[in-house]
Design a protein around this nucleic acid. Sequence first.
RNA 1: UGUCCGAUGGUGUAAUGGUAACACAGCGCCCUUUGGAGGCGUUAUUCAUGGUUCGAAUCCAUGUCGGACAGCCA
Length: 576
Amino acid sequence: MSLENIAPPTAAPAPSDFIRDLVAQHVAAEHYPKIHTRFPPEPNGYLHIGHAKSICLNFGIAHEFGGVCNLRMDDTNPTKEDIEYVESITTDVNWLLAGWADHCLGLTPAQAPFYASNYFDQLYEFAVALIKKGKAFVCDLSAVDMETYRGAPDRPGKDSPFRNRSVEENLDLFTRMKNGEFPDGTRTLRAKIDMASSNVWLRDPILYRIRHTEHHQTGAQWCIYPMYDFAHCLSDYIEGITHSICTLEFEVHRPLYDWILLSLDLPRPLPHQYEFARLSLGYTVMSKRKLMQLVDEKLVTGWDDPRLPTISGLRRRGVTAEALRNFAYHIGITKYNGVTDVAVLEHAIREDLNKRALRRLAVLRPLKIVITNYPEGKTEELDAVNNPEDEVAGKRWIPFSRELYIERDDFQEVPPPKFFRLKPGGEVRLKYAYIIKCDEVVTDAAGNPIELRCTADLDSKSGGTTAGRKVKGTIHWVSAAHAVDAEVRLYDRLFTVAEPDTEGDFKVHLNPHSLEIVTTKCEPSLRDAKLETRYQFERIGYFTMDKDSQLSTNNPQLIFNRTITLKDTWAKALQK
RNA sequence: UGUCCGAUGGUGUAAUGGUAACACAGCGCCCUUUGGAGGCGUUAUUCAUGGUUCGAAUCCAUGUCGGACAGCCA
């Protein structure tokens, strides 16, 4: 075979979408010296998987086109913001970028994120410039009057009586606003555009408001704060952003974004805004307000509750950054507002974990069995592969003895058709060990099985003469004497319906069984479990150790979170 | 009854005037010391009506449906 016929290694195809297509055109046309994007969260809550989509888009573009993406705190409203959030945002962004796009992360020379509040001085000067150009004025209308004057989408507004103040008076009033001479809500700085515009955002929008509130970054330095529309386009401009990418609801703001930059007569190139559809995911809620409500009302344990779609929650649950990035890649970028099936997320998580998780045996709901033909007091160490998907992961040994635990679900006294686990008189293979046969069922007073007495085919373990014997089922187990106990937190969907926030109170759809805690019997090697390591409890699901685990005490307590179950085609068959 | 935006299998996306494709979900089979993973197969799609064109998911017109916008929030 000639060299040319050998297929090149298949690289993951570069994502393509309407925004990347545009960027590619701009690159080809040498429109900008360098592509510069930004991710600009307001530090008023924790980041969620919808932000992850945006992060992957903005940093992905920087990555693919040799550009930079700034992390910027859009902190123009001190009443809603907190330093706790800037810290969590920084952590989450770094976590999502690690090993992928760290080199694209734009930070200040001090290695800190950018802050819109860093630009308060410049922003103030821009406002003054706008006043001098006769394009902004100080308005004394109250909030209620302002609303009346604004009109409605299908009805024009009318000019403020303060619209035609002289430049000198506006300058004087704005300076005095800044100096703290007026109480909150008494005056605003407004752009002078068009009160009859069909776009409500062009009806003399407010640029600055008075707020005698301390800011988490600038302290008591300011008592006037810029509005989003004024601060955002100019922050983009100051940072040299080329592509300012945001979600669809800002589409109607774009004319204002452009108006401010154009009115200031700034040197080109100017940044441009592009919009894409935000993520909505089935069986969860995504708005910061609703997430905040769940946290505040203690319906979850905190922002990093593993049931939440927050980045910190997903991370604690055991989802890796790579899985999240793959998910973002698979859902694409469009302007269509759809609801993504959680199955897509779940698939991305399983696909990732299958490759990396160390296999372990653990029994969630134990049922004791005794191998009557196995000597009392004997212990064997059996060979078990750590990960059939990854030879490098190696092997470990697991102890086998006369008394074991198996999963309660793996035994049925009166089995349904096609049940090929353990049943009276039936045979099953114990994973990595022997084929056993159930001879006797010991029950309690109520008739529930409490112990199974079995015999093993002692030649059937790996390497034995009957090792190749086919039995239909293989089940997991742990040696009773060697098992270590662990608390296992089984998470399920937070809501019982696919779209909990379409109407009414979303909280009525909360799933009462979204968390179940069980004490499990684990194979002894799990005593050395690590926080960063992902595990698959064979035939059950993927698990990761929770930070609540107590490891340093002389009575260590292991806690595992179930990231996600394995696909269970048997459970599905049973439902039919 | 304003302005802007959108509509492709069940779901999310691709096709940029030239064979409607991919992933997830579903279904079936094979394989399996995980009812996992994997392999193979399969079901199902261009909102409607007109127009332009040799040819339309793509361009045009009209309509329908859906979303966003009337915070001194972002």
